[in-house]
Design a protein around this nucleic acid. Structure first.
Lengths: 202, 202
DNA sequence: TTGTTTTGTTGAACACTGTTTAATAATATT
DNA sequence: AATATTATTAAACAGTGTTCAACAAAACAA
């Protein structure tokens, strides 16, 4: 069955080619302002053909959604070596914020834009749940070492996620231009360090 | 000039009528899924007529955007009587979170949806800046009373805003379903209280 | 009360959108 | 070589925001 095999490979190549074109346009113009015709034109295809490879526009988007999660998780992975859970926790936040800074559009696609959430939760959320239990695990480790002892694990985890996401979300929406002189990056990093300082006192 | 006066009043009435129809549809279906034709139909008008009163769809939206801010500020206003700045600060966060819970769609319009941000900042942002300096004032008051003494005022203010917004943003996007059993409201309130606990230790 | 100008309102049109589909071309199977 | 499968396309459909020429209504001037 060499032919069917080659066929499948060709199909996968086309799949990739569409995704590459779509990624470029999506990250350039955002979800709403990207049209199927834009994507098709980018790779010199007819708009209708896209529907041979993807059910609809949101399916293309979700593929990139997952891509973003893989990217982020890879960056978080290097922290596995950090032995002390509190240090690892603090560093995770920094990595997360850095990811948002360097991949603002991905961050938007992953955590803010909600257009194609629709009915069935996208697979990205499965990874999202993993990420949450990963965080919760770290918090628990910290607590076993005496940190945040009087805190409820779940609520505290939720708080930490909220802090980091809040910082990134404000950044992604440029909702933080009202602070004198300081750049977005300064605000984010020092705002986070202020939180770390609170944690350290706890 | 009694006639011109009446004319202006009539125009304002039409303005309001459009806004009322638009509010209903916007809060029902969100920004993207609301069309000018939807709004026109709601008030039995022709779509083109809307453009006699508003430059475009986003201008209608911004009017409601401002409306949301006025609503929120009114709710925050009752806290003026709270003498102790730290108590006032803590209560402000609770009020803010409650506002998001009770006006999820407004919150989306005000702080998350970015479709019509476009070029010139909407007037809502002027109010936003006021809100920020209001927060910063509270933090300063706290610091004068000995709280958060070793913290940078601006970064610390930014952190507080990030925490509260993060909690609300996760809620508005239903990105917090991965916590066992707990309802959204429980998570938000107890997550925030966990933060308050951190502040109190500081 | 005329005629004129200003103010509102409308339907039709334009250029776009996501998506479907019938026709067609290209390829694989028999 | 004939048939069946797979891939591609242009055209069409119903929707979008927005513009505009035509038209009606009211206000003003004579």
């Amino acid at each position: 069955m060499g032919i069917a095999e080659r066929k499948q490979e060709e199909k996968q190549e086309m799949h990739k080619r569409i995704l590459n074109g779509a990624r470029k346009i999506f990250l350039e113009k955002g979800y709403e302002k990207t049209s199927m015709r834009n994507i098709a034109q980018e790779i010199n295809y007819s708009p209708g053909s896209l529907y041979f490879y993807f059910r609809d526009k949101s399916e293309i988007f979700h593929e990139l959604h997952k891509e973003g999660f893989r990217l982020l998780l890879n960056q978080l992975k290097v922290l596995e070596k950090v032995g002390d859970p509190f240090e690892r926790l603090k560093a995770s936040g920094r990595v997360f914020i850095q990811f948002a800074q360097e991949n603002k559009d991905y961050y938007n696609l992953m955590f803010i834009v909600d257009e194609p959430v629709k009915d069935s939760l996208p697979e990205g959320f499965q990874i999202g749940e993993e990420a949450i239990s990963y965080m919760q695990g770290m918090v628990k480790e910290c607590q076993q070492k005496g940190k945040f002892k009087d805190m409820d694990t779940e609520y505290f985890t939720f708080l930490i996620i909220s802090v980091v996401h809040g910082i990134c979300a404000l950044f992604c929406k440029h909702r933080n231009t009202s602070f004198s002189g300081k750049t977005d990056e300064e605000l984010m990093e020092n705002g986070y360090e202020a939180f770390v300082a609170l944690l350290e006192k706890s």
